[in-house]
Nucleic acid binder design. Structure first.
Lengths: 135, 135
DNA sequence: CTTCATGCAAAGCTTTTGCATTTCC
DNA sequence: GGAAATGCAAAAGCTTTGCATGAAG
């Protein structure tokens, strides 16, 4: 588990996410790296993104009905996803204190973590919609 | 959009979710219905589950890295997903008031809705893990 | 009779996996 | 040199889609 090897590819994946400065999908990372390292495997990118998330170097933002995203922000925070284009961005909101304590009937479940996910429409898509209406 | 036809299949799908009394996946609904209506199409089930969710008759619980679930509970509530078996159940927790108001910098995004999703380990899987350790 | 939904199969998209080869320690 | 990661391709899992046929209004 903890005995992981340091490989070039793992560094490449990590640095790619740092350089891209967005909430990137695994495929975006793969395409990004393929330019300079054409032999890198998609499986390797997926594997390393997950490993890096487990290790805490990256954060995996799970997206239903779409590709998962990865980012580098270390502080805990929430995300909003545009229902039109699917873009994910950070939400500036304090964490809700003691959220786990509010759970009453647990059905015997051990609660481990939670995530709040928002949906909305980003400025770019809002503009596009306006234009379509006026067009 | 709003001019939808009432079809037998749509009723079947709705009733199936009501009868199954769980957070069911589209495929589970399909298998359930196929017993009595062997010619029903998987696409039809998917289409009607989405239509019924849009209409408010069902609630779609989006699950990353897994099949989406549908249930009938009309009151707003939250969900917890077992990280071992993937089962989804309701969480008994009051809604958090004014959650949307807590958002500070919106980057110009129009916020529409939010969802809180918990992760945990269900009693059944916890037992299984214990047995494996002691075995 | 026109339009929409169905059934079926195929394709789409994201992710995982099997395996020979290479790399790391 | 032994174990683990890679690259490649194939498969898996969930969902959507194209199209001819059939049902609804």
């Amino acid at each position: 588990m903890t005995n992981r090897r340091n490989t070039i590819q793992k560094d490449l994946v990590k640095n790619a996410v740092y350089e891209m400065k967005r909430h990137v999908t695994a495929n975006e990372v793969y395409e990004f790296l393929k330019k300079e390292y054409p032999t890198i495997g998609k499986g390797t990118v997926y594997r390393n993104l997950d490993i890096l998330s487990e290790e805490g170097a990256l954060r995996k933002v799970e997206v239903p009905d779409g590709a998962n995203r990865f980012d580098i922000t270390l502080k805990n925070h929430y995300h909003v996803r545009c229902i039109k284009c699917g873009e994910v961005s950070d939400v500036d909101m304090e964490e809700i204190p003691d959220l786990m304590k509010r759970i009453h009937d647990t059905h015997g479940i051990d609660f481990l973590e939670y995530d709040i996910s928002f949906k909305g429409i980003c400025p770019r898509c809002r503009e596009k919609m306006k234009e379509e209406q006026n067009g």
